[in-house]
């Protein structure tokens, strides 16, 4: 059993395997207050192993189940899970979303190559988005994706950019209406009815508060320059 603080929420985790605690090592807290607790039972872990396309062990499966159990509760704290790579650059938080395999990690690594220390990767795969006093913030989580990049931290989320592969680099803005529909494949919708409804309300607010972009990009430095110009500089 251990306690973590993610997105400002204290979660007590009843684990069976040491890997889960190791994974969460940067998020451990000794605060006495607990917002909610989660656990993964043997049945769920077995199901996770069976339903994953790649061979995984029980330790890893437990960590995935814990992650999902946390995601189920986030709406109660005005938060949701956004499948994306979340970075901060010059004080601006930007999330890059794409289908698996399109190259979110590649694109943020180009940002790092071009802009160096100005770029901080908060989470490469599954950040939490939380509404606080009318503004959306992106938070790091222990679940970093296969490239394993990210650092405990948070930043105001100003823009979300949908990535697509292209031969040339081109960026355009996306309307809230279109973005809202595109967001559905990138968020975790809780199965608990009330929390699902609350998540939809949050996504509705999110779609009217954040700027959305659509980027076609290749793997050259210019890709990061084009997206940086539009998203950070607003040109």
């Amino acid at each position: 059993m251990f306690k973590i603080k993610i997105a400002g929420i204290n979660v007590l985790v009843h684990n069976k395997y040491k890997f889960s605690e190791y994974l969460c090592r940067d998020y451990l807290t000794d605060e006495s207050h607990t917002d909610f607790s989660v656990c993964a039972d043997e049945k769920e872990i077995l199901l996770e192993i069976q339903e994953t396309n790649a061979p995984i062990n029980a330790e890893y499966a437990e960590s995935v189940c814990i992650h999902r159990a946390i995601a189920e509760h986030l709406a109660e704290y005005d938060a949701f899970l956004l499948h994306s790579a979340f970075i901060e650059c010059e004080g601006v938080g930007v999330a890059f979303a794409a289908k698996s395999g399109v190259g979110k990690s590649t694109h943020i690594s180009i940002w790092q190559r071009v802009f160096g220390d100005k770029v901080r990767v908060i989470n490469g795969d599954k950040p939490i988005v939380r509404l606080i006093n009318g503004e959306f913030y992106g938070y790091g989580t222990p679940w970093l994706g296969k490239e394993n990049i990210g650092k405990n931290g948070c930043c105001k989320l100003k823009a979300l950019c949908f990535l697509n592969r292209g031969e040339k680099n081109a960026i355009s803005t996306v309307s809230a209406e279109t973005a809202a529909m595109m967001l559905f494949s990138q968020i975790y919708l809780p199965s608990i009815g009330e929390n699902a409804a609350k998540t939809l309300e949050l996504v509705d607010k999110f779609s009217s508060s954040v700027s959305f972009f659509k980027l076609y990009c290749n793997m050259q430095d210019e890709a990061a320059k084009v997206s940086h110009n539009a998203i950070i500089k607003g040109e």
Partner: peptide, 14 residues
Amino acid sequence: RQVGGNNVVVATGA
């Protein structure tokens, strides 16, 4: 629910 000006239907629970 209305999300970003769209009326969307989703399934919850079971």
